[in-house]
Write a protein that binds this DNA or RNA. Sequence first.
DNA 1: GTCATCAATAAGTCTGACTTTTTGTCTCCG
DNA 2: CGGAGACAAAAAGTCAGACTTATTGATGAC
Lengths: 233, 233
Amino acid sequence: MTTPGRGLHGHVLDTLGPEITAGEYPPGSVLRTDELAQRFDVSRSVMREAVRVLESMYLVESRRRVGVTVRPKSEWNVYDPQVIRWRLAGADRPRQLRSLTVLRSAVEPIAAGLAARHATAEQCAELTECALGMVAHSRGHKLEGYLLHDVAFHRVVLEASGNEMFARLGDVVAEVLTGRTQHDVMFEDPDPAAVTLHVQVAEAVRAGDAARAEALTREITVGALQELDILAP
Amino acid sequence: MTTPGRGLHGHVLDTLGPEITAGEYPPGSVLRTDELAQRFDVSRSVMREAVRVLESMYLVESRRRVGVTVRPKSEWNVYDPQVIRWRLAGADRPRQLRSLTVLRSAVEPIAAGLAARHATAEQCAELTECALGMVAHSRGHKLEGYLLHDVAFHRVVLEASGNEMFARLGDVVAEVLTGRTQHDVMFEDPDPAAVTLHVQVAEAVRAGDAARAEALTREITVGALQELDILAP
DNA sequence: GTCATCAATAAGTCTGACTTTTTGTCTCCG
DNA sequence: CGGAGACAAAAAGTCAGACTTATTGATGAC
């Protein structure tokens, strides 16, 4: 949640963005700037700024004499944090959650392997701290505290990988983990096996054992896939 | 290359975007909308639209009474195709190329495994066609033709994975492969072993052998990592 | 030294007029 | 009947200027 609604054009986006990403306007639909400005009761200047932002997300395309046409889903910039948030809040939330979890399963093991080779002493300490925090909150309906440390753990791993593309996925992972706790599964205490795996990953990274860190993280992500019934037999 | 410079604000972005991503303005630098408008000889409206776009890429932050401040590199949306292109055209091109190649090495093997399970008959045919095209252009300084089929090959794999997040990385991979051919290595004909691997991946996907497709693709990406001297001993 | 007040500042917003490009249509001629 | 060119309408694009609002740094009172 960077800074939502920072201005009139932000408010427009908060409404129009979710509508478009929810698929309310089929691809090729045409919107008119003037009509939108009327609908949201803002000036054309403000509406134009909003359209520019939507355009930079590849959600729409603005062409003269035609209007603002909605692009097909396949062209959307699905890595834009805003777009991710809008879609997670919308109807195809489950689908989105699956896509992101699969992405996690590809990236996090490699990131953990790199972290084992690049992590600073401080990052190793943070990692151990997070893992211990997870252990401490793993029993007795302390899901909020558990989630907090879980998110922090994965964020540190992605950071410590030293790869900027991986590091930028911290927010995505946070959204996925948060969403999972809040909605879908995990009514009771978290899987003890998962907790153990996190502790072991922290150890492996500290020991500089890249292969082991990668393998253990792969086990974690396989668990995440199974939770969503994404099998790979 | 979607549609560059489609309007005055696009021209402004083409200049200002590369400047910012090149790090010409240190984090925290303050730009003023009015001054920028003067510099580019455009109206404030146009300048404001450009700033909004930069803001949606997390390159800058616009605050009242302060101005447009440049955000630290760690907050940039490095998955934005435009940002990727700007950075690849700039000074830290090598660094960017490495980051993206590591990302490829994480994603593509998993994508190939999924493709083996989800690819349609048509996609399998396309894949075989691309692989054969690579073979046909693998000797005799036909790098342009080879590159074309190589890009298409990886694009189809990512598409066929059925995961939208993977599919959207097609452009990124295209940039990396193109950049590699144009600048860095590959003055002579491509590595015959790599060509063979591509053919074998196409076979594995067609046969529905996920594990084999994944392993073979991992060999391809390991080769890509080695080309850039990114080792993992 | 701390807190409230106030003025300067730069972004934010609105309005209205004008320009430019594109597209659909309508004619005119083959 | 069909194609090429001219024309008009439509919508985005651009600009200029006036006004509003939030923020911040400085000033001054306690």
